[in-house]
Structures are given as structure tokens and as C-alpha cells.
Design a protein around this nucleic acid. Sequence first.
DNA 1: TCACGGGAACTCACCGTTTC
DNA 2: GAAACGGTGAGTTCCCGTGA
Length: 213
Amino acid sequence: MTYETVWTIESIKDGFEKFREINGRYPTAFEIDDFALLPSSRQIQRRFGGLPNLRKKLGLSIENYTTGDIRSSTACRIGKVGKNCENIIFKLLRDKFDEKFVHIERPVNFDRKNRLDFYVFAKPNNFCVDVFNTDGGIRTFIGNMNTKERKYRNSTVNLNENLYFVYFGDKIDKDRVQLWLSRKTTRHPANWIILDVNEFKVEIERYCPYVVE
DNA sequence: TCACGGGAACTCACCGTTTC
DNA sequence: GAAACGGTGAGTTCCCGTGA
């Protein structure tokens, strides 16, 4: 698409139908951005008052993905996938450091609102782990990281231990992550480390478990 | 029962690019 | 320079699962 293209309700509807022919459903905001036959979701927000409004104008069967049965099934899936990711990391930590030295859902600074997925007692230093899934790609990754950043920055006292953000999913381009980090207006503390699950497996080899006498 | 975390979807704000 | 548009970080909304 070039800048002189004038997007009409008809041309956008054609794009939506083309997407449905290929994928069997209508696109979400991110998918709209990635589909050549549609304008950006940002453009839709400006010209049509948001995606739900546009879907209404187009007469689509689904106007909003954030409510109703669609949202319910999505939330259900999120819960299961997230739990599965946590279980994988827990088994990894338990096998290396012993269950007694792996705290699950540990409150940050006694603040029950904010909890670490795992806090591990190890030598030479204890460390923290936050696990998340990124099946939605780099945008999901960035969105989740921003949410977690607010959570940990809002904690009353800074964590001194290394805090590992461990992500699942194979759609994340490492260079894209570095680009995002370099462009961020608010830099992460030096002890925040972002790794995929395989890198994390290597990383924990730097630590030694405590031994119960 | 209620509060909260988690992640997807979405909107907003800001800035840069392209075209005329 | 104005208008149209894209990219992206930040913030909000939504709903389920979980634990106090």
C-alpha cells in the first residue's frame, strides 16, 4: 500500500473478507497491522473510531474480541498455557536446586499484590524468576514486559537479586528484543535479565544448589 | 466472596516518514 | 508546510483462575 491509497469502507471490507478466506476468521488489531490488504489498526482507530466501531459498520458477526464468549475462551486458554509454562520452569528449578530452596509465588517485599513466580535460594546469590508466554509474537512480548515492568517498579523496595524474565515461544526475534530495549525511554535495572527458556537452562548452571546436611 | 495476577486486545500519545 | 499514514511505547479493559 502507498500513501496515496484512500481506504474506503468497501476496500477495508474486501480486506477483512480476504483475511477470513485465508484464516477462517476475522483479524485482530495486530493481525490487521500485518495484513497487506488492510490499513494499520492505528489508521482504523483514527478514521473509524476504533476497531469495534469499524466491525459494526462492516456488519461483522464479531464486533469486539475483549468481551463475551470469545474473550472467555481466550482467558481460559491463557490460564492453562501460563500454568503449563510455570510448571516446566518449576520442575527445572526443583531438579537442580531442591524443592525446599524454590519458593513459589513469593511476595515482593511482603507486598502480597506483587508476587514473584519463583524465588530461588542458591550460591553464590539467590535469584528471582518471572515466567510468561509469548505465542502472540513480539507485540505480546513487549506488552507483557511493560506490564511486568510496572509491577516490579511499583514495588516499595528494589530487588537486589537478579530477576530473570523467562519467556516461552519461538516467535521472538532476539535482534528485535535488543532493538526494543535500546529504544526504551525507561531503562531496565542492570539485574533484570530477559532470556528464553533454553537460555535460562544454561544460565542456571552458573548457580550451585545448597545442600541440606 | 472478594481481590488480585496474568495475558490478549485495544486505545492513546508521540514522533517520524511520505506525498503533494 | 499540511495532510495522511505507520511504528511503537505506555496505559486500560476484560475475564478466568486462584488463594485468602
